[in-house]
Design a protein around this nucleic acid. Structure first.
Length: 198
DNA sequence: CACCTGATTGCCT
DNA sequence: GGCAATCAGGTGA
């Protein structure tokens, strides 16, 4: 479904508010890892909101399981799951605490450590333009599930610019239940060239 | 560029 | 046992 254009609130970095709002505000934020002394970083340009046990498309829809336990750990937790038995996908858990809501990080634009990402991906382009690719580029795996995005090995960093971000809201990708909600958000006009690498 | 398909494995019914 | 919050490579317009 085609979407509608909006402008994201800048937000305050507080992940405890509603997951749909958080999904929009996370656009322009950065995700970084440093393994073996080599930093890699992307700017987030595509997200999807999954609203806890109320959302038929959420992994938490049928309550807590071993896989989705990190979703119940509260805002700022990283939830990583395996998709289609092959890929890792990363989520930012949001509030309210215990609601088990999370924002799936569906795409990023490389900002730093591009050579390392190219090694991990085994190619030079399309490094992080998909949820599985984003994790592969940053070296995020299931061993990072449940870690803190503020203090852990995978860090969420505030956006650098105060410019409002223009975004498109569309239906979520690859799901069958609750497929009509416009809870996918794609940032427009971010290509990484205007943001200096760390 | 749009659409189609095989690969691959863990999770839940 | 069926399905899934995907990816990459192929085909054809």
């Amino acid at each position: 479904m085609s979407g509608r254009l909006e402008v994201a609130d800048l937000g305050d970095g507080d992940l405890s508010h509603d997951v749909v709002e958080a999904a929009q505000q996370l656009l322009g934020w950065r995700l970084s890892t440093t393994f073996n002394g080599v930093p890699t970083e992307v700017v987030i340009v595509e997200t999807e909101a999954y609203r806890g046990e109320d959302d038929p498309a959420s992994h938490a829809y049928r309550g807590r399981t071993e896989r989705n336990a990190a979703m119940y750990d509260g805002p700022g937790t990283l939830y990583v799951y395996r998709s289609y038995g092959v890929h890792w996908c990363a989520n930012v858990v949001t509030g309210p605490a215990g609601e088990a809501s999370a924002v799936l990080l569906r795409g990023g634009v490389p900002l730093a450590g591009v050579e390392r990402m190219q090694e991990r991906r085994g190619r030079v382009d399309h490094l992080a333009d998909g949820p599985g690719k984003l994790c592969a580029a940053l070296g995020i795996t299931g061993e990072h599930d449940g870690t803190s995005l503020r203090h852990g090995p995978v860090r969420l960093l505030p956006r650098r610019t105060a410019e409002p971000i223009e975004l498109e809201a569309t239906t979520r990708i690859g799901i069958t239940r609750a497929a009509d909600r416009l809870w996918r958000f794609v940032a427009r006009g971010i290509d990484g060239s205007s943001l200096a690498p760390t």
